[in-house]
Design a protein around this nucleic acid. Structure first.
Lengths: 217, 217
DNA sequence: TAGAGGGCGTACCGTACGGTACGGTACGCC
DNA sequence: GGCGTACCGTACCGTACGGTACGCCCTCTA
C-alpha cells in the first residue's frame, strides 16, 4: 500500500498534477459531483490508479488542496527599510492579492469543500486551507507591519491583532457572501479600489503620522 | 402532495418544531450525519411523516434554517435621538450580539450546511442564511448609523459601505476560522472586549469628533 | 522478439441513503 | 361500537458512490 502524494509530501508528478487539476475543475463546476468516477473520467485515468496514487477519496482531496495551496504562494520578500509610500504600496499589494484569491472561483470551491468537511473530524482539510490562506498571509504581512513600526510609521502593541484588523478591513463580508452562494464578481478595478480603501483605513487607525498627501507614489 | 412547512410559510407546529430542533441537534453534533433515518430516530417520528411534512430532504433543511432564523431576530428598535454614548452603546450591542451568534455552535453548523449546499444550485439555503444573518443585521445597523450621521456624530456618504466596514472590524477572521474547523471558543468577556475594540475603531474612522474620553458610559 | 510493468477502461461488490409502502396503534367523531 | 385520521416503526426498493478486481494496451528494456 503505497500512497505517493498523500501521507508523504512528495510533489505530485506532472500526470498527477493533471489529475489534481481535473479535481479542481470539477469542484469549480459543482462541488458535489467530485466523485471518484467523475474524476477518473475527467482525468482519463482509471479509478485504480487514483487509489494507488492517493490512497482514498480523502487523500485525493487533501492532495488537491495542497496542490492548489502550493500554487498560491508567490510574492516578494520584505524590503528592510520602509518609507511611508513603500509601506502603503506593500499593504496594497497584499490586499489586492488576498481579494483576488478569495474571490476566485477555485478558492470559493475549495473553501466550500474544506468547510463541509470540517463538520466531521476526519482529515483536516480546513486546517490545510487555513494554514495556506489566512495564516500564510498573516505571516507575510506581520513582518511588514513590524518593519513599519520600526521605521516609526505605525504604532501597535500586538502585530497579530493589527493584522487581524487589516484582514477584517480588507475582507469584510466578501468571503462569507461568496461562500453562501452570492455572485459578486468584482473586477480588477473594484478590487484595487476596495484594497486602497482598506489600506487607508488601516493607516488611519495604526499610522503614527497622518498620511502625507504630497508623497503619493 | 401537501408540504406543510416548506413551500408554504406556515409556522411549524410544536411537534414540527421538535423535529427541527432534532435536526439542529444532529447538525451540531456532526453535519454529515443529518440523514433522514437519523432525524426520524432522533425525533421519534416516522420517515413517512417527515416526507409528508417537509416534502423532501431539502425541504427539511430549508425549514430548519428558517426555523433557526426565526429565533435569532431580537433586539430593540431605534431610539430616534442619539448622543455619542448611546450610539457607542448601540453599536456595541450589535457587535456583541453578532459575535455571539457567529461563534455559536448552531450558527457554525448551519452555515457549514448552507455553504456546502451552495455549491450546487438547488434550494437556496445560502440565500436564506445570508438574508437572516448578514443582511438582516445590516438593515438594523444602517438606521442607527444614519441616525448618528443626522445627529452629527458620524460622517459617511454610503451607509452600506460604512456598515460593511463595521462588519469587517467586528468579524475579522473569526467566522472563516470557525467554519474551517478551528476551535476558538471566545468567552463573554473576550467577545465584549473584541466588540469594544471594533466600535472604537469604527468611531475613529467614521466619527466626526474625536471620542470624548470624559464621556464614557 | 519477448517479457515486465504502468496505466486505462470497465465490470463488479457492498453499503449507505433518499424515498415509499404497509401494518399497527391511539384518538376523535358519528 | 364502527370509522377515519394521524402518526409511529419498520421493512423495502433503487440508486449512487467508494472501493476492488481484471483484462488489455502501450512502452521500455534486453
Amino acid at each position: 500500500m503505497q500512497a505517493s502524494a498523500t501521507a508523504e509530501q512528495e510533489a505530485p508528478s506532472a500526470r498527477q498534477q493533471a489529475v489534481l487539476d481535473a479535481v479542481l475543475g470539477l469542484m469549480v463546476e459543482d462541488g458535489e459531483q467530485v466523485t471518484m468516477d467523475a474524476v477518473a473520467r475527467r482525468a482519463s485515468c482509471s479509478k485504480e490508479t487514483l487509489y494507488k496514487w492517493f490512497g482514498d477519496r480523502d487523500g485525493l482531496l487533501t492532495a488537491t488542496v495542497r496542490w492548489q495551496a502550493s500554487r498560491v504562494h508567490a510574492g516578494h520578500d520584505a524590503a528592510q527599510v520602509l518609507d511611508g509610500a513603500t509601506l502603503r504600496e506593500r499593504l496594497q499589494d497584499f490586499a489586492v492579492t488576498w481579494l483576488e484569491v478569495i474571490t476566485g472561483p477555485t478558492s470559493v470551491a475549495l473553501n466550500r469543500i474544506a468547510i463541509a468537511h470540517a463538520g466531521s473530524r476526519k482529515s483536516n482539510l480546513g486546517g490545510i486551507v487555513l494554514a495556506n490562506g489566512r495564516f500564510a498571509i498573516g505571516e507575510r504581512v506581520k513582518p511588514v507591519l513590524e518593519a513599519g513600526r520600526a521605521a516609526g510609521l505605525l504604532t501597535f502593541a500586538d502585530s497579530e491583532a493589527a493584522f487581524r484588523t487589516f484582514f477584517g478591513l480588507v475582507g469584510r463580508d466578501i468571503q462569507i457572501r461568496l461562500l453562501l452562494g452570492e455572485t459578486l464578481d468584482l473586477d480588477g478595478a473594484e478590487i484595487r479600489r476596495d484594497a486602497g480603501r482598506a489600506v487607508e483605513q488601516f493607516l488611519a487607525l495604526y499610522g503614527r503620522a497622518k498620511p502625507d498627501p504630497n508623497h503619493r507614489s
